[in-house]
Design a binder for these strands. Sequence first.
DNA 1: CGACGGCTTGACGCTAATCAATATACGTGG
DNA 2: CCACGTATATTGATTAGCGTCAAGCCGTCG
Lengths: 221, 221
Amino acid sequence: MPSGLSAAEMARIDQLITTRRKVRRKAPLFRAGEPFHALYAIRTGVFKTCVTAEDGRDQVTGFHMAGEIVGLDGIVQDHHTCDAVALEDSEVCVLPFDRIGELSREVGALQHHLHRVMSREIVREHGVMLLLGSMRAEERVAAFLLNLVQRLQARGFSPSELVLRMTRQEIGSYLGLKLETVSRTFSRFAQEGVLEVQHRFVRIADVERLRSVLAQPGSGF
Amino acid sequence: MPSGLSAAEMARIDQLITTRRKVRRKAPLFRAGEPFHALYAIRTGVFKTCVTAEDGRDQVTGFHMAGEIVGLDGIVQDHHTCDAVALEDSEVCVLPFDRIGELSREVGALQHHLHRVMSREIVREHGVMLLLGSMRAEERVAAFLLNLVQRLQARGFSPSELVLRMTRQEIGSYLGLKLETVSRTFSRFAQEGVLEVQHRFVRIADVERLRSVLAQPGSGF
DNA sequence: CGACGGCTTGACGCTAATCAATATACGTGG
DNA sequence: CCACGTATATTGATTAGCGTCAAGCCGTCG
């Protein structure tokens, strides 16, 4: 969270956190169309966010874990434009947005922190656009796994082992692939000795090889 | 720009605009890696923004026209993470970011306006992710053209005619397609009487048919 | 224990990428 | 201002990669 704050400032920011909210697996934190009044800081658990087109198609736009903020989409129209759904039993801090506005006027560091959070989300989405626009299936899956373990490692988990909290379908939606393609790609990596895959459990057996998949756009010749 | 402001508030916001800057066609407004110190409000002209991966691949992340803000990517790391390049001779207002911070603490409406601008960009990118993740080539091109004319119409231009300021290559990069596919899709639409295309000039001959392309995920059977 | 959701694997088809040749517009310098 | 050279665009032939459809397996949860 924000750094460089005095004790007094910290005390004020604590006022922000009015409520915590538990969200059970598969339950929505919010849904597109609902009125927006708060951002949510994830304390524990994992969420997916997804947008839905008029014709019903939907797209997972991100997977979010402890320490990350969701709900930023709601600011512009005063109502949410995507769904946030818990992938496991989770807990969030509710941060009423009008309070954030007031407080960030008094505490400059909070203001700047919020700006950075929003900017980070924009930059993250640029990365996803690069992935969706120019990578092949193997590269997408490799990038996805490397990104996940990196974030897990930053939270004190293993840099080489992880348990997927999402289905192949959801991974596929996020990566612009069908679930069969995700499954096949996992299998191929496993066969090549890059990964060990057992359902939701994944061990990265050869990080270098996995990284090298990203370096070679034209596939592995 | 922001509404609901007193004259005094307006006067303060005018202080924001210290400089204008002209950018010639093909010249960068900023480049990835450069230090960030300002946002840019486009006065005239068109820009593309694009990110580049380590391996050199790049991806156009957006096309931006008068009234839109670019540079939001730079906030999080204090340096830009993408390039903004003028597609025609253009002019921007330079909005020094530290001033924005100070002023938005005094003028609540400005603060909220900035939040909305950033949130709008996040939501826009969700839409692009949906496009890249789940649409077929025809749908992507149709969505691209409809989005462009809609924005042009909001600026007082024709709802059915436009001049593309970007190459097929750039359109393709934005849409996750190769330039040949973009060209072929234009040709097919022209052959079906949906579009008239002459190089950079496009006339939408049948908006309804173009819209209906989007409604049918499974292609046009 | 049975049923259902999630996952894997195979066979096949289709879309868009690739490679290539040509045409057209644009910009630049003589 | 014209001519040349280069960027941009169109179009065709072929292919690779992913999607689709289908069948069967596994694991979980009621």
